[in-house]
Nucleic acid binder design. Structure first.
Lengths: 211, 211, 211, 211
DNA sequence: TCCTAATCGAGACGGTACGTCAGGTCTTCTT
DNA sequence: AAGAAGACCTGACGTACCGTCTCGATTAGGA
């Protein structure tokens, strides 16, 4: 993913010393290292990040307006890639989508970081908007596509509110991962949710064709 | 509700001048006023709260270890009271529970405050734990009670995982309120969710008796 | 010496619980103990004095308006008593006066305290005035009396400016003790000064009679 | 005089933005302005100095460890320059030296400041040491030189203790200026002291040559 | 023997200043 | 020009005292 700098260098022809990509990486990876080392979010000052990355403060401010904008890029870099969908059936697709979500809430090395940073970002509206539009919304759109296609193919009743259905599918996972910080969601949870929910939503007549 | 001071005054008999409850109220209400006036959470310094409440900084630190602990009490004071359940049927109880949750996520005067403060609190583990154990957990327990009683009364299939069901019920509401900050959840949403979900969970034989 | 309270208890007949003299002593001696233990003057807060003396702050403020007024009384209590003058000759009296002054500037247990406190008091005009009028001025008056009597008795030339002479006698002792903190003024210094100075001040004709 | 910063900026080659001399001046002159305006020493907080000078507190702490160290520099800047000695005779030199001292104790605009600050400094040993070694001691050395030269030239008896003589000369001036805050020492005082003291110290044989 | 009133230790109260730290901006020299 | 370094102003941090003010508990007279 491109680390498009929020502060573009300049428009005209390239003048002066070009910005070093190595510096860019050093800053982001330095931040992640600090987070992995258990430094609480509240102690993550720009000053400390600059020290860790061996970089001047101005070099950071030249690229990101403030701490939060930097965090969006740190998150973008750390997020695991979105999964390939099998496409064999609505159930299979949904299970894969939810299973990905489940793993994201787990307590592996980087997820704990993501979890914390995401939680803090929600209190900063404009940054949340940026993260939402570049990370959350696309993922949601993909999920809705799966449901709509299933509806078109007759795997889902025509009168189903797919937006609500999506939230009902995804909500409990979030409920458990984000809010209750259980951090060890059981393995079969994704299938359990999907199976529980798809029960009453199947059309009476069998689907015309699997997609 | 009692504002149990995180820094207890002393153990033995009451010695010295007792702490003023009026001051306690002034601090909490001053904080709420600032939040209502749209002051962003990041600009809510102890210094400013003290100024607003007409109170010395030490007077605040005497009661709360830090900003987050103060917020827990602000929240406790501001939270609307939990609803009375009609008890006429499982569906009615659930609709009331979810409707309350929906309204809590709305953009009325105080809810916006709660929303923001709660979001920030999640990045502070120990404070979240305190809020969770005194506010969130009791509410969850009440919800689970409703489901278990319905199961005992035959309104719900015996093999239903009530914990999962609760998360499935509550999750979408949270999904929309907390994460997507829609802030205007439609009126009928609670009924819609309940009706959608209860479909496949009714026992085959009719319930022995409504509770 | 009476520790006349700057805040007199009341005018009328003695009503209510009388002030405890034990408390008065505890405060002054507690302050002296702190000073002896080497606590720098700048760290001598009323709060700490109260803690040390096992006394409420108000109990101190009831007696002294502020720290400086308290120090005046501490000094008055600690000052060594003024010496008896032999009266055998001008030279003998002066040597005793100056010798006393020399010892006051020495580094024995309490003198270091007096030295420090006196130095600080000079930066607080009204307190200095109080100390000056009750301690310094009487001592000076005694010194001038010695000189005037000697002048009357013919031991000193009639045209001598006794005030200036007193300052010339006392000045070097101060110069060395207060300013240069030598703290070990040589034993014979008093005699040396007196002998050096009295040289040119003797009247041509011998004194009519020793007093 | 160079305002050597007590907190040296760095060792190696000049890196980063250099410290602003204008800021240095603003701080010192702001402090002097406050003192001239009659602000008591006890109300001279770093906070207030920073406000007056239009400067951040950290900018002050970057240069001086504490209030007292700052005062040393304020004094150094405010002290009137040491006088040129006429060199025509011992008496003339001494009169000039003492006359300078007398004027320093006077109540002109800045002298009151110096007086107060000096008085307070004496209660802070290490700061006094700094002031003593950079201001007081050199002045004393110059005075002793005058006496020793006079002794070599036969203007003074060979057995005179010049150190004691210096203290005897300077002491009364200090006695009056510092201790008794008379603040209006009479014009002829310097000559009066010198003439009174030199009386008995002249050698029997006339000096070989004026220096 | 009660009553009144000032005292006592304790500590809360509104403030002010402390010395530190971080946020962003700006200047300097080096690359 | 970009970069590292670090000075700069601003303002919050949490602590310590200031001098005042309640508390409950004494400790004396005077009724």
């Amino acid at each position: 993913m491109s680390l498009a700098a929020p502060h573009p260098p300049h428009d005209g022809p390239t003048r002066g010393r070009p910005r070093s990509e190595a510096v860019e990486r050093a800053i982001i990876e330095g931040t992640m290292k600090l987070l992995e080392d258990g430094v609480p979010l509240s102690e993550l000052s720009i000053e400390r990040i600059a020290r860790t990355a061996g970089v001047g403060k101005a070099t950071i401010y030249r690229r990101w307006r403030d701490k939060e904008e930097l965090f969006v890029d740190v998150l973008r870099t750390a997020e695991p890639p979105d999964p390939e969908l099998p496409g064999t059936s609505l159930r299979d697709d949904l299970v894969v989508l939810l299973e990905t979500l489940r793993r994201r809430g787990q307590a592996d090395r980087t997820s704990a970081i993501l979890h914390n940073v995401r939680a803090q970002m929600k209190s900063s509206p404009k940054i949340w908007a940026a993260y939402d539009s570049t990370v959350i919304a696309p993922r949601r759109r993909a999920g809705l596509d799966v449901l709509r296609r299933a509806q078109r193919d007759g795997e889902l009743r025509a009168d189903t509110d797919v937006e609500l259905l999506y939230d009902i599918l995804v909500g409990p996972m979030l409920m458990r991962a984000v809010l209750r910080r259980t951090a060890d969601l059981p393995e079969g949870l994704a299938e359990q949710i999907v199976d529980t929910l798809l029960e009453g939503l199947r059309p009476v007549s069998p689907p015309t064709a699997p997609h």
